[in-house]
């Protein structure tokens, strides 16, 4: 691969990054080529030792998304970061996607329970309207009790969701540091 090919491949793989950031990165590699050439290496040799531009780009993109999620953890940002980190290597399909699905399922389940408990008196009322003959005060009071419980669960879920999100972002950061990349035998 020539310098031109290497840089344009890297450029293309990085097109999701802000242009300032991309320019910065390309500049670093320009510099690397210039110094290698000054030492008498050929463009092909330099590109060969640098490794695959696509893999380098994946690393940079994953770092970028994880950083963004750290600054503002919106749902869309989290999904983008998880996706980028999974792209780092096949290995991550298991050790990132697996826990991610499990955590999302737990959070969704928790909120669903809270939501269902909170609206339960409404369900009793609907039931009473449809079948007035089976109305029992016990149902009404019990459902009001559930609403209280649901509110507590919702408060708990709010904090749990925040804790899980920040914990998972830390895990992604750790993963980017350790997983894949950099090695010849990769």
């Amino acid at each position: 691969m020539t310098k031109e090919q290497f840089l344009s491949k890297l450029d293309a793989s990085l097109n999701k990054l802000p242009s300032q950031e991309k320019q910065d990165i390309l500049q670093d590699f320009e510099e690397h080529f210039a110094m290698g050439l000054a030492e008498g290496k050929t463009e092909e040799q330099i590109a060969e030792s640098l490794g695959s531009p696509a893999q380098i780009a994946k690393d940079l993109i994953a770092t970028y998304h994880v950083e963004k999620v750290e600054a503002t953890a919106t749902t869309a940002n989290i999904f983008r970061a998880v996706w980028a980190v999974i792209g780092l290597g096949f290995f991550n399909l298991v050790i990132v996607l697996g826990p991610f699905i499990a955590l999302v399922a737990l959070i969704v389940a928790g909120w669903t329970v809270a939501g269902a408990f909170i609206v339960s008196p409404l369900l009793v009322i609907i039931n009473t309207v449809m079948y007035p003959e089976i109305f029992q005060f016990f149902d009404l009071f019990f459902s009001i009790g559930l609403t209280g419980l649901g509110l507590f669960i919702a408060i708990g879920m709010y904090f749990a969701t925040r804790a899980v999100t920040s914990g998972f972002v830390r895990y992604l950061k750790f993963n980017v540091r350790v997983v894949k990349g950099g090695m010849k035998d990769a």
Partner: peptide
Amino acid sequence: IDISEGTVYPLLRR
């Protein structure tokens, strides 16, 4: 160490 040299740059940026 036997490395793909290009990966040092993402590391430096991070």
